[in-house]
Design a binder for these strands. Structure first.
Length: 588
RNA sequence: GGGGCGGUAGCUCAGUUUGGUUAGAGCGCCUGCCUGUCACGCAGGAGGUCGCGAGUUCGACUCUCGUCCGCCCCGCCA
């Protein structure tokens, strides 16, 4: 039994066809315009805004009560829908043709003046928005984004359900695993000195579900990583986690790119041509200097190692002697950059760890470069020709070992594109990067670490390399990239105990340690593990990119700050001594 | 862990370079007037530990040191 007149309609739906009907609306005071006699209130709910009118001649009690209305008061109003007088319709508002002439007003709740306005006319400091998140969430931008996000959940569920996938929840309290990100730990009260970890991903569980015969698994699931944050990284985030049995790479990729294309079609009306372009890791690095290339602009790289390997320029020649590469790219029209601008670019490149940056400017006077006296006119001209440069262009060259040279060029390429405004923001460039290396060498730990994760299967042609040259072995791993952002990654997994043990060994984990940490998984593999593989897609990141938000915080209801604090509820917080004692924990 | 930027009225900011009278503006808020506004209008008013703590100085929003908080980047994030 309601203690107030319940709404019969929402604030977003009344139109001219409703004129003459009596309605009750519930909502918040968005703005108030008190003209002394007549009072206009914009009443707001999540469906929209309807102007309600208090006229002393049409309801003097309601009008008197309306005098005290202020921003964000919660109201129930009853009145008749009327056409606005000639010339006073509001074309910018969907409900702009009508008013609700109020006969009865009930104030359901009063509100203090909010610390910032609900309209988004002025930028508001983010820490304030986070402290008063419940108010920020009333604002149009977050309302829109969270509704977009809701639709993406629904599309996801429908997409997978219609393809026979089973949604299964996996534990949030799980076993801490080595490698990868730092775990969030949860102390056990019952077992002194033992800890659960929050999942970095449900990786082991979904593989075990494959052993159990659930050959198509999906879950929209929270994951937790205790690492430092960025604009696109939060300590807890959501993934669309997928695993399938009896499949290879192409099956997973078709499924995942189909989902992304469905998002674009249904949420934005955009057709994404499928299948998506594929780049091997090597191609991506050697063309764009990134394992998540942004292909919305050119500035593709060109290898000139062979042209300069025996030149008189010792920086290049010595590097090539040591097995390094020399490569670079052409910036069309870049010759007009000033000396000052070039100095900034050189400094930027050095800041990335480069020894230096060699550049040629092709001006009216011809090819100009500070290193012409070392390379010689002919080689300079040959480089420009080989790279396809023209008059007015700038050529940028970096010389270093393969990975470092291309990584530096990749950052420089992005920087130049931003500086020169070359990025076409209207494009939606999706692609796959495949054939990642199995391992990368960790200088810190003096051993190989898994580039994707340690359950990733090696490329069938590279099994031998695991023994002879593990650093060269390719993995059956793949990432999906949108406009230079990694939005998902997966692999075909190892389903063979022997091979899995071998990979553990290469990662410096002996049989005993492997048994202790992953005995349950290896145990499952004894009882008939099917070939399987999967992928995880970054749900928040996809919402962020599709809604054009700059930060992942803008697509989450209750995000944390860059120092992982929640400003609204002030988590993390200190706890009672009693709680600590029960958990056998002392703070040092 | 490192680098950069920021913290002044409820909000958005100016003032800090070169220390010096009473720290300003717009919006919001409060009061009054106003019967078709929609950025309503008009008149008046209130509102400040200049993030915090030391120091230098006759005097600190301003200079120095420390510290806290926010944002961005590097490291890190299989």
């Amino acid at each position: 039994m309601a203690s107030f007149p319940k709404r019969t309609r929402t604030c977003g739906e009344l139109r001219a066809q409703d004129i003459g009907t009596t309605v009750t609306l519930n909502g918040w005071v968005d703005t108030r315009r008190d003209l002394g006699g007549v009072i206009f209130i914009d009443l707001r709910d999540r469906y929209g805004i309807t102007q309600i009118v208090f006229n002393p001649q049409r309801g003097s009690d309601a009008h008197a009560a309306a005098k005290e209305l202020r921003s964000e008061f919660v109201l129930s109003v009853t009145g008749t829908v009327e056409r606005r007088p000639e010339g006073t319709a509001h074309p910018g508002l969907e409900t702009g043709e009508i008013d609700v002439m109020v006969s009865a007003l009930m104030i359901l709740n009063r509100a203090e003046t909010p610390p910032f306005p609900m309209d988004e006319s002025a930028e508001t400091a983010e820490d304030l928005r986070l402290k008063y998140r419940y108010l920020d969430l009333r604002r149009p931008s977050l309302q829109r984004t969270l509704m977009f996000r809701h639709r993406m959940y629904q599309i996801t569920h429908r997409y997978f359900d219609s393809r026979g996938f089973i949604e299964i929840e996996t534990p949030v309290l799980m076993k801490s695993t080595p490698e990868g990100a730092r775990d969030y730990l949860v102390p056990s009260r019952v077992h002194r000195g033992r800890f659960y970890a929050l999942p970095q991903s449900p990786q082991t569980y979904k593989q075990i579900l494959m052993v159990s015969g659930f050959d198509k698994y999906v879950q929209i699931v929270k994951c937790f990583r205790d690492e430092d944050l960025r604009a696109d990284r939060q300590p807890e985030f959501t993934q669309i986690d997928i695993e399938m049995s009896f499949v290879d790479e192409i099956d997973i990729q078709n499924l995942a790119e189909g989902l992304i294309a469905t998002f674009f079609k249904e949420l934005k009306g955009i057709d994404i041509p499928l299948p998506l372009p594929r780049f091997t890791y090597r191609e991506a690095m050697e063309t764009y200097g990134s394992d998540k290339p942004d292909t919305r602009f050119g500035l593709k790289f060109c290898d000139i190692t062979d042209l300069v390997g025996r030149s008189g320029f010792k920086v290049f020649a010595d590097n090539v002697q040591r097995g390094g590469v020399v490569a670079g790219f052409v910036v069309p029209g870049g010759a007009s950059l000033t000396r000052n601008q070039m100095d900034t670019i050189v400094d930027f490149t050095k800041g990335l760890g480069a020894g230096g940056l060699v550049y040629f400017k092709w001006t009216e006077q011809g090819l100009e470069t500070a290193v012409e006296k070392f390379l010689g006119k002919d080689i300079v001209a040959a480089i420009a020709a080989h790279m396809g440069a023209a008059k007015g262009d700038l050529i940028l060259l970096v010389s270093d070992v393969w990975l470092k040279a291309y990584t530096i060029l990749g950052s420089l390429r992005l920087e130049m594109a931003r500086r020169l405004n070359l990025i076409d923001e209207t494009r939606n460039d999706l692609l796959w990067v495949t054939e990642f290396p199995m391992f990368e060498y960790s200088e810190e730990e003096k051993r190989f670490v898994a580039m994707h994760h340690m359950f990733t299967a090696p490329h069938p042609d590279d099994i031998e390399l695991l023994t002879t040259d593990p650093g060269k072995a390719r993995a059956r791993a793949y990432d999906i990239v949108l406009n230079g952002n990694e939005i998902g990654g997966g692999s075909i997994r190892i389903h063979d105990r022997e091979l899995q043990s071998k990979v553990f060994g290469l990662l410096g984990m002996g049989p005993e340690e492997a048994e202790k940490k992953f005995g349950f998984l290896l145990g499952a593999f004894r009882y008939g593990a099917p070939p399987h593989g999967g992928i995880a897609l970054g749900f928040d990141r996809i919402v962020m990119l599709m809604t054009g938000m700059k930060s992942i915080r803008d697509v989450m209801a209750f995000p944390k700050t860059a120092s992982a604090m929640s400003l609204m509820d002030e988590a993390p917080s200190e706890v009672e001594d009693k709680q600590l004692r029960e958990l056998h924990i002392r703070v040092v």
